Computed example of a mutant assay.
Amino acid sequence: MERIRAESINRKAVTNEGVLEMWNYYHLREYLLSLGRGKDFTESTDHYSESLELSSIWHGTYDRLRRNASNTQSEYVSIIGVDNQARQIVLQVIPVEGEDREIPSELNKEQRIKTREKGGADVILGDIHAHPEIYEWQYGNQKGKFSHIGSFSVPDFWSIIGPSHDYLMGLVHGDENFLAFRTRESGEMDGLTYLPFFKRNRDSFIKFWYTKRGMTYLPKEKAIVRLNLQGEKGRIDDIELLNLNLDIARKHHLVIYRGKENETLRRIFPETNV
Rank of each mutant, 00 (worst) to 15 (best):
M1L: 14
R3I: 05
R3S: 14
I4R: 02
A6P: 00
A6Q: 08
A6E: 11
A6D: 09
E7Q: 14
E7Y: 13
S8I: 04
I9W: 06
I9Q: 11
K12N: 14
V14I: 06
V14G: 04
T15Y: 05
N16F: 14
E17S: 13
E17T: 09
G18A: 10
V19W: 10
Y26V: 01
Y26G: 03
H27S: 06
R29K: 09
L32V: 10
S34I: 06
L35T: 08
G36A: 06
F41P: 04
F41W: 00
T45M: 14
D46N: 13
S49I: 04
E50P: 03
L52F: 14
L54I: 05
H59P: 04
T61Q: 00
T61Y: 00
R64F: 02
N68R: 10
N68I: 03
A69P: 11
S70V: 08
S70I: 05
S70N: 10
T72N: 09
Q73M: 10
V77K: 01
I79K: 05
I79Q: 00
I80V: 15
N84F: 03
I89K: 01
I89P: 02
I89Q: 04
V90C: 12
V93Y: 07
I94P: 00
P95V: 07
V96L: 09
G98E: 01
E99M: 09
E99N: 09
R101V: 11
N108D: 12
N108I: 07
R112D: 00
I113D: 08
T115E: 03
T115P: 00
E117Y: 08
D122V: 15
V123T: 15
V123K: 15
G126S: 07
G126E: 03
D127L: 08
I128Q: 04
H129I: 07
H129G: 08
E133D: 12
E133H: 10
I134W: 15
Y139E: 06
G140E: 09
K143F: 12
K143H: 13
H148A: 14
H148Q: 07
G150I: 00
G150V: 01
G150M: 02
G150D: 07
V154K: 00
D156G: 01
W158N: 06
I161K: 03
P163S: 11
L168W: 01
L171M: 12
G174Q: 12
G174V: 08
F178T: 00
T183M: 03
T183L: 04
R184H: 11
R184N: 11
E185C: 07
E185K: 03
M189G: 00
M189W: 06
G191L: 00
T193D: 15
T193Y: 13
Y194C: 07
L195T: 12
L195W: 04
P196A: 09
F197M: 12
F197I: 13
F198E: 11
R200P: 00
N201C: 06
R202G: 00
S204F: 09
K207A: 11
R213C: 10
R213Q: 12
G214M: 06
P219Y: 04
A223Q: 07
V225M: 10
V225I: 15
G234E: 15
G234K: 11
R235Y: 15
I236G: 04
D237G: 08
D237F: 07
E240S: 14
N243Q: 15
D247R: 03
I248D: 01
I256F: 01
G259V: 08
K260T: 07
E261A: 14
T264K: 13
L265W: 08
R266P: 02
I268P: 05
I268M: 07
I268H: 05
F269H: 15
N273K: 15
N273G: 04
V274T: 12
